[in-house]
Amino acid sequence: MKRKQGFWTKIGVRIPLVLWSLAVLYPILWMILGAFKSNAEIYSNPWGLPDTFSFGNFFDAWSNYNIDISVFNSLIVTGVGALLTLVMAIPTAYALERLRFRGNRLLFTLYISAMMIPMVLGWIPLFFLLMQLNLLDNIFGLAIVYAVSQLPFSIFVLTSFMATIPKSLEEAAAIDGMSPYKILWKIITPLSMTGIITVTIMNMIQFWNEYFMALIFLQSENNYTLALAIDYISNETQYTNSWGTLFASLVIAIVPVIILYAIFQRRIVKGMTEGAIKG
C-alpha cells in the first residue's frame, strides 16, 4: 500500500498487537517468576516480582515429586519415538515419491487421510492390544504408539522434500552400480536432511508435550512422563496448595521447548503451517 498511513492509524493498530503480546508473555513470565517464589509469597503477592530468587521449589519438585524420573522417561520416549518415526518414514516416503508401482497413490492417500481421522476410537482397542503385547504401562510401548501416530505427518513432509531432489543424482549413482539401499542411505537421506530435521523437531515437541495417550497407556508413577507428572502435581496442589512446586515443574517442562524454539524457530513455524495446509 502506497498511501501514507496516519500517525493515529499506526498507534491504533499497535494497541491490539501490544495487548496480545502482553496476554501471551505475561502469564508465561509470571509462571517462571512464580517458580522462584515461596508459597507464602505467591499468596501475598501473586503477580509481582519475587523478593529473592530461590531454587527451593525446583529441588522439591525434582526430588519429592519424582520429576527426575519423569524427565528421564520423557527424554526416552521423545528420543526413541523420534528415531523410530524416521526409521519408518524415510524409506516409505522415498518409495512413495520415487518408485512406480500400482497402488502408490492409494497408499499415499491412506497415510495422509489418517491425519484427519479422530484416533480416540482406536485408543480403546489399542489399550488391549498393548496389554496383549506386554507393552502397556511401558514407555517403549508408548514410544512405538507415538512414532506410528506421527507417521502420516512425517511421510507427508518428507515426500514433499524428496520431490525437490533432482533425479539425475540417483540415476548417475545407479549407473555406477550403487545398490538402491545405498542410494537411499548415502544420497537421499543426506540430501533430505533439512526435511528430516524439520520433521524430527516437530515430532520431538509433539512427543515431549503429549498428554492424553500417556494418560491412557501408562499407569504406574515410575513410568509417568513429564506431562503426567505435572498433571499429578496439579491435582495434588488443589489440596496441598504448593503452587511454587507446580510452577517449578511447569518451567522444567517448558524450558526445552523454549530452547528448541529459540534455535529452530523458522523450521518449526514452517513445519507446522505446512502440516496444517495438507487438508
Binding site: 524409506p91 522415498y94 518409495a95 489418517a114 482406536g122 480403546i124 539401499y181
Partner: peptide, 23 residues
C-alpha cells in the same frame, strides 16, 4: 520396494488401522 514399504505399513496397520476397525 518391500524393504521400503512393508515394515512401515505393518506397523501402521497394527497400531492405527486395526485399532480403528476394531473400535
Amino acid at each position: 520396494m518391500a524393504f521400503c514399504l512393508v515394515p512401515t505399513f505393518l506397523m501402521f496397520a497394527i497400531f492405527t488401522l486395526y485399532p480403528l476397525v476394531n473400535g
